[in-house]
Design a protein around this nucleic acid. Structure first.
Lengths: 345, 345
DNA sequence: CTGTTAGCGCATTCAG
DNA sequence: CTGAATGCGCTAACAG
């Protein structure tokens, strides 16, 4: 048995000795350097195999100053929303043979601009920032330090930098237009956090669709939320309390739409017969609630994939100038929307 | 301005020169070695501050052979289930000042026993295996190589090793008992993947509760699933088709319970008036579906935290012998269960 | 208390 | 085509 205990650390030196060559040669074999005789390569490979050699990545990156690891900064992991994005990132990283270091921001409120850059120093080659609340906190430092990064689903109102998002305006426009075509004229809208570009874009899309269809805006029909479920509930309550309540409610994300569904039901109203509900995102559970939620799908998995590709591009050619790109949204019609019932019957 | 561009790499040597000391002293300051004059420490700290020094972790771990990173191996991230566990892990890692490297198994079907150990070589100090399908694939190698690891929510039927799980048997027992106390005597059961200990434990708990309450087992009331939603649907259909259909269905996890809810509704039956539905896990959306799902809560977040603590313990004292520990489950009663209606009325 | 020194495992010159 | 030598940035002895 030539095989030895692989737990004892086997370095390039051991392999070299056992293979009767110098450590330089072993290194060449490992890195597929052409300057190795086929026969030698063969023999060394075999020895590595036998000894269970595995490169020490610490040493390799210390020397070469690249780690083959990329860092991903996420606010949280609880939601299916981010899970989808992560899936896309992970898939793409897998094919590129990169590993993934995960950082969550929820555990420490990150105030300092330097935090990310320091934390990450030497550990990762690039950074993917998912759903950053205040991208400006990082982007300045990162850009200044020429550290490769890509934003995923951030607001678009900061300086231009590599980012991927979705067509929020278009998605909201289409959804609103769909409700109007269904016959709704009084459509309630619950916004997201208005400091986020995604939220303002969605509101603007809603308004534009109304305008195009010659429906006048009623400020009482718009109520402000921050993307969390309870505000969907309270928002819907507020909307149902006004004089001429809406026949449809469009919430800026699925979580709030589900809150709104609860509120509607708590009033003894039916969905969609009495009130249509429409969401945004198409998180996994949107299809599971009853009635299933009509919503605007964001291509989350694809956003993760595209962002990763951009980052890998950047790693390959740091001088490359990348900008924000937007992926298309899509209206997914399910059971929570229908034509308004004719109450006058 | 003494501050210089922090992007140019500032090493311990630079700091030493600038501080008028040797690099050894700087190292001592960094590592809080006591053998440094307070005054010197002060001065060096200030210089580090000014120069924006950040330790190179590659170099540090190359030397010290510990990385302060732990690896987490998960099957996927899409589900809230794993998100909860991750949250617990992340929290605990945060206080211990460890970073987190994420590996997903879905992207490559891991067959080789060596894969994990090799992949991880030198990159992490320990490994957390979340929901491993075939723990035996890893545990052998890992144990043999004396690589610290803890299993989270695996089946309990392999060799003893550090692991954390939940009281599946007890949870299923309590839930079944609760249904019986409600007046149900014909309780359908949909199993999970029967190669997983968690699944068999739940089935056993169900059976035990029946036995204790002198209700005879009816094999037709048990139907096999693999923890995925569609099987909840088909399983419920099968159960509703037998001669004396059950008045309650207990699914081995929430996903299948939701599938069962759909099936019940598709038959035009009401929940819980006609059929009670009970799940297992208490994933976030269990509280969001309508009616809200009665279920057995697994303390997922806590399981993540406890497992992490165990692993950190192991890192601190590798000789420590840790075994499987179980955390208590809890029955969460919501709207999907009630006493069976008296059909004879 | 502080400076000096020797590697950690590897990639990369530079000579053969 | 291959071997020998030089650090990457840092910690941990070892001498002062």
């Amino acid at each position: 048995m030539t095989k030895q205990n692989p737990s004892s650390k086997v370095t390039i030196v051991e392999v070299a000795r056992r293979g009767g060559v110098s450590l330089g040669t072993v290194s060449r074999v490992i890195n597929n350097d052409v300057h190795v005789a086929p026969e030698t390569r063969e023999r060394v490979s075999k020895v590595m195999q036998e000894m269970g050699y595995v490169a020490n990545r610490q040493a390799r990156s210390l020397r070469g100053s690249k780690t083959n690891v990329i860092g991903v900064l996420v606010p949280d992991l609880g939601t299916g929303y981010i899970g989808e994005i992560m899936h896309g990132i992970d898939t793409e990283l897998g094919v590129a043979q990169f590993d993934l270091m995960l950082f969550t921001t929820h555990r420490t409120a990150i105030k300092e601009a330097n935090y990310v850059a320091n934390m990450v120093r030497g550990m990762v080659d690039g950074l993917l920032l998912v759903l950053p609340r205040n991208p400006a906190d990082y982007t300045g430092t990162l850009t200044h330090r020429k550290f490769p990064f890509v934003l995923i689903d951030h607001q678009g109102n900061s300086d231009p930098c590599p980012a991927v998002g979705a067509t929020n305006w278009q998605g909201a426009y289409n959804a609103t237009d769909y409700l109007i075509k269904l016959g709704h004229t009084r459509i309630g809208f619950i916004t997201g956090s208005m400091d986020l570009g995604a939220a303002t874009d969605r509101l603007d899309g809603y308004k534009a669709a109304l305008r195009v269809n010659h429906i006048s805006e009623d400020p009482r029909l718009v109520c402000e939320g921050t993307f969390f479920q309870p505000e969907g509930y309270s928002g819907a309550c507020a909307l149902l309390d006004i004089d001429a309540p809406p026949t449809a409610i469009f919430a800026s994300n699925d979580a709030m739409a589900m809150g709104a569904m609860d509120a509607v039901r708590a009033r003894g109203l039916r969905i969609p017969e009495d009130i249509s509900i429409l969401g945004f995102d198409d998180v996994p559970q949107a299809a599971l609630v009853r009635p299933a939620l009509t919503t605007v799908r964001q291509p989350l998995e694809q956003m993760g994939r595209v962002a990763t590709q951009m980052l890998l591009d950047l790693l390959h050619d740091p001088s490359k100038h990348l900008d924000r790109i937007e992926l298309p949204t899509e209206l997914i019609v399910r059971g929570s929307t229908s034509s308004p019932k004719d109450k006058a019957g």
